[in-house]
Write a protein that binds this DNA or RNA. Structure first.
Lengths: 183, 183
DNA sequence: CGCACCATGTAATGCGTTACATGATTTT
DNA sequence: AAAATCATGTAACGCATTACATGGTGCG
């Protein structure tokens, strides 16, 4: 799966593993991340499959770097993947819900503390999507009008984050209230 | 992590791996699942750690079964885990968002089809939480009033599912509309 | 007759994280 | 003087899935 994320970026231009990581941090990281070590091994595997090829670029005063370029095969794999429909619901593990499910086996205060801490985290994250994340996308569209089409999609993924975190905070409020009443 | 889920169930009563799987299907499966093979290997590892012990129960006309019982050590591990706060946001990978992020590289119709299919799936799932899942919890509280306290928490996890799926459908509607306008 | 259910396990493989290993330059 | 950034990789480990392996009972 990470292969396709990397192909998606490389289709915009050749890059090193290190640069791919940086690109992911600033964009897909909220719904797809990978450690550098995994990126490096995945790129190697992709080269073996013929999806990318690499060449070493010497640099003065900086370590040499290995620049990856997408191949025609890589492009067609990416296209094929993008065209494949998602026919099933994704299923996400959620530790908070797991703890909550068994929370009758612990005390009221522990559970309320758990929920309050989460509320704090999710509020900050909601705020991040509403401000920093939003501004970043706006600044891209101003600097690079050529990316107008991509920005539509990037904005859609940001908006998901915003709605998700708002829903989370609402649910936490509701749940906290319910426990305060019923326990 | 699966260990704790299994401990949570075993704390209500001794069970086989097969029965643990069935219990998960009917309850935690929406935020925590495991295949039978993983449950069996995890139980074995838990026995090694001293969290559970097992004994074979012979049965007529059915295969013998291995029944697991939680130990005092297992109980205290469970308690400790339940009391640990969650100090970080969970990070979920989302294939739909990943595809959408790169959707400028494919055609409008492919993307709209992707979103419409997802909307269908999430609407069904929202419906499931509002009806079947709700009724199941209501029937438990009627049959076993002793589980009143647990039902509060189970209902909270169900409600999360409902709100999540509703948010998802709303976001999909919004995104579909936006693409229809802007592409 | 075939499928679902009951019941348990092992082996192979894949995906991801953590730890290990190195080392120069730039910023605070 | 210390920390962050640039830059690449390997090895060990852990968690999870898929495939393999077995075999009786009950139901439509």
């Amino acid at each position: 799966m990470l292969d396709y994320a990397l192909l998606g970026f490389l289709n915009y231009g050749s890059m090193t593993g290190y640069e791919l990581k940086q690109n992911m941090e600033g964009s897909t990281s909220h719904f797809w991340t990978a450690k550098l070590s995994q990126i490096y091994t995945t790129l190697k595997a992709m080269e073996k499959k013929g999806w990318v090829r690499s060449s070493i670029q010497a640099q003065k005063e900086r370590p040499d770097k290995r620049v990856y370029t997408i191949t025609a095969e890589g492009r067609s794999s990416l296209q094929k993947w993008l065209a494949e429909p998602l026919t099933e619901l994704a299923h996400h593990k959620n530790t908070l819900l797991l703890k909550l499910f068994f929370a009758a086996q612990t005390d009221r205060e522990t559970t309320l503390a758990l929920l309050h801490l989460q509320k704090n985290l999710h509020q900050r994250q909601a705020d991040f999507y509403r401000t920093k994340s939003r501004d970043l996308i706006q600044s891209i569209v101003q600097r690079s009008p050529a990316l107008e089409k991509e920005v539509i999609f990037w904005e859609a993924t940001r908006r998901f984050g915003e709605l998700y975190e708002e829903m989370y905070v609402n649910w936490l409020d509701e749940t906290i209230k319910s426990l305060e009443e019923k326990l």
